[in-house]
């Protein structure tokens, strides 16, 4: 072990990172952490949703429609959180040429797009009975729609090249350019007047929401984070195995030729 370390003293950081690039090691390690992460995610999400749907109080003016919040807000957080993780994977892919980061970025795309679509759809279902409109072109809703298009663009772009490496690179550049949209989404409700209300939960101030509504919301949100991580990990594991299958099949074909 010390031999390996002294062999390339100039690259300790990348060496560390690339330890996880070993597919066998990744499969073993992720196979061990995936079940607990998925279970925690499922348990927290189900608990939060049941709490929110049946036990949390109705809002004084929205009545029971406020319960849509327990799916809409976590979906919205996951949409942005997922895009941030896509950007981090893209940096790892561009800077360190990390093969697992390439695969993870490809797998984050569809999951993030699904949660963004959920955010838009549940928002629409909430907006119609409360505001009186399915959709309004205000800064918050438009910027989230742009996030959805960014995910779709990434999904298409990473699959658009015969040379996979070029697809990874193009997707990573798109993902990083799109990061500018994240602060726009977050602050759209403060920078411009919108139909969408400002944030109830901020890092700096006290939440403007009763604790009996805040707790189920946080449960679903944290459970969703675990669930998102579990989904992406499971898909990346499958992608690692699929890549190995492709390589083995190719080697077999070559050996027979």
């Amino acid at each position: 072990m010390s031999d390996v370390n002294t062999a390339s003293p100039a690259l300790p950081a990348s060496r560390n990172l690339h330890r996880f690039a070993n597919p066998g090691r990744f499969l073993r390690l992720s196979g061990r952490i995936l079940p607990p992460v998925a279970l925690i995610g499922l348990a927290l999400t189900v608990a939060g949703l049941v709490w929110g749907l049946f036990f949390s109080p109705a809002d004084w003016q929205q009545h029971d429609a406020v319960r849509i919040m327990y799916v809409h807000v976590p979906a919205a957080w996951l949409a942005s959180f997922g895009y941030a993780s896509l950007a981090i994977a893209s940096i790892a892919s561009l800077v360190w040429r990390h093969p697992l980061a390439d695969l993870a970025a490809v797998e984050i795309g569809p999951v993030g797009a699904a949660f963004t679509a959920l955010c838009l759809a549940t928002g629409s279902l909430w907006g119609k009975p409360m505001w009186g409109a399915w959709w309004v072109w205000d800064a918050r809703m438009t910027s989230v729609l742009v996030l959805f298009f960014l995910y779709l663009g990434h999904i298409a772009l990473v699959r658009a090249f015969d040379d996979q490496q070029r697809g990874y690179r193009a997707g990573a550049i798109l993902a990083l350019v799109g990061v500018v949209n994240l602060p726009i989404i977050k602050y759209s409700v403060d920078w411009w007047n919108t139909l969408h209300q400002p944030a109830s939960i901020t890092l700096t101030g006290a939440p403007t929401m009763a604790p009996s509504m805040l707790w189920p919301l946080l449960l679903v949100a944290v459970g969703g984070m675990f669930g998102f991580a579990a989904l992406v990990t499971a898909r990346t594991r499958a992608a690692v195995m699929e890549r190995r299958i492709r390589a083995l099949t190719l080697a077999q074909v070559r050996a027979q030729a």
Binding site: L49, L53, H63, D64, A65, R67, I68, V71, H72, A75, V111, A114, A117, L118, A121, T122, L125, W126, K128, P129, G227, L231, A234, R235, R237, A238, M241
Partner: peptide, 27 residues
């Protein structure tokens, strides 16, 4: 508001459930 609430929860369960099933089958 009940149809809107049910639609929002139903849609979420279907989409997330589909993601889970797809990941399991693919693995």
């Amino acid at each position: 508001h009940l149809p809107f609430i049910l639609a929002a929860y139903g849609l979420s369960i279907v989409v997330v459930g589909w993601l889970c099933v797809d990941a399991i089958l693919r693995t």
